[in-house]
C-alpha cells in the first residue's frame, strides 16, 4: 500500500518561479525516505506540499487517502492530524515545559487528560527525555529540543512523519542521535518517515531510500541509496 502518491504535480510560485515540474512518486507504508538535492531543487517545496503549506498548481497529491490539493483551508487540520512534522528550528513554545509542549498537540485536538498523560510519557520515553519533563526548552541542548519536537510530532501516532532538515542546526554527534531516534520510531512504531536533508554523512550511513531532486525534477529514486554528488 502506498501512503503517499504524487501524480503529475507541478508547482509554480506567484513570482513566476517553477519549483517542481511534473513529479510522479509513490512512497509505501513503513518506508524511510530521504529527499536530497541542492538549493532550488524543490525539496522544501515538495515537503511543504505534503503538509499543505503550499498547494500544487497542477496534479494530485494523496496522503493517507486525503486529496491534499483539494483540501480547503479550514479542513487542513484533518490532514495535519494524520501527520507529524519536525522542523529545523524545532518550533517549541518557550514558556511551556517539555511535558506541556508535547501535551499541547493532544490538547488542541480535545484528548482526555488521562489519555494525554499516557501518550505524552510514552512519546518522551521513545525519544529518551522522560527525565526532563519539567524543564523549559531554553534549558535544553539543541539535540534535546529537537527530540522534544519529535516527541510532539509522534505523540498522536501519525502514519507519516515529515522532517524538514531536522539536523540542520545540530553538530554531527547530535545529528546521529536524532537519526537513531527517528530510525527507532520507524522500526518500532512503523511510522513512515520522509526527511529532507543535505547532510551527506547521514544519508550515506543510514542506507535508506533516497529521492534525488534537481531543479524541480526527479533525478532518481533508489532503495538503499547514497548521496551522489554528480547527480546533484
Amino acid at each position: 500500500m502506498d501512503l503517499v502518491r504524487i501524480k503529475n504535480v507541478e508547482k509554480k510560485y506567484k513570482n513566476g518561479v517553477t519549483a517542481i515540474y511534473d513529479l510522479n512518486l509513490a512512497i509505501e507504508k513503513g518506508a524511510f525516505v530521504f529527499v536530497i538535492g541542492g538549493s532550488g531543487s524543490g525539496k522544501s517545496t515538495l515537503i511543504k506540499m505534503l503538509y499543505r503549506e503550499e498547494k500544487p498548481t497542477k496534479g494530485q497529491i494523496i496522503v493517507g487517502g486525503l486529496d491534499v490539493a483539494k483540501l480547503k483551508n479550514r479542513k487542513v487540520y484533518k490532514l495535519r492530524r494524520k501527520l507529524g512534522i519536525v522542523f529545523q528550528d524545532y518550533r517549541l513554545l518557550p514558556k511551556q515545559t517539555v511535558y506541556e509542549n508535547v501535551a499541547f498537540a493532544l490538547e488542541v485536538i480535545g484528548a482526555k487528560k488521562d489519555e494525554i498523560r499516557v501518550k505524552v510519557l510514552k512519546a518522551l520515553e521513545d525519544v529518551g527525555l522522560k527525565h526532563k519533563l519539567h524543564e523549559y526548552p531554553d534549558h535544553l541542548s539543541g539535540g534535546e529540543q529537537q527530540r522534544v519536537a519529535i516527541a510532539r510530532a509522534i505523540v498522536n501516532d501519525p502514519k507519516l512523519l515529515l522532517c524538514d532538515e531536522p539536523t540542520g542546526n545540530l553538530d554531527p554527534d547530535m545529528s546521529m542521535e536524532i537519526m537513531k531516534v527517528l530510525e527507532d520510531i520507524n522500526e518500532k512504531r512503523g511510522t513512515t518517515i520522509i526527511m529532507v536533508t543535505h547532510d551527506k554523512d547521514i544519508v550515506n550511513k543510514m542506507k535508506k531510500q533516497v529521492i534525488t531532486l534537481k531543479e524541480g525534477r526527479l533525478v532518481n529514486f533508489k532503495k538503499k541509496g547514497t548521496y551522489n554528488n554528480e547527480a546533484i
Partner: peptide, 17 residues
C-alpha cells in the same frame, strides 16, 4: 503568532484556535 502556527501544524481546527 508562533503559538497559532504551531497549533495549525499539530492539527488544531480553526474553530479550536
Amino acid at each position: 503568532k508562533r503559538e497559532i502556527s504551531i497549533m495549525r501544524l499539530v492539527g488544531a481546527s480553526n474553530f479550536t484556535i
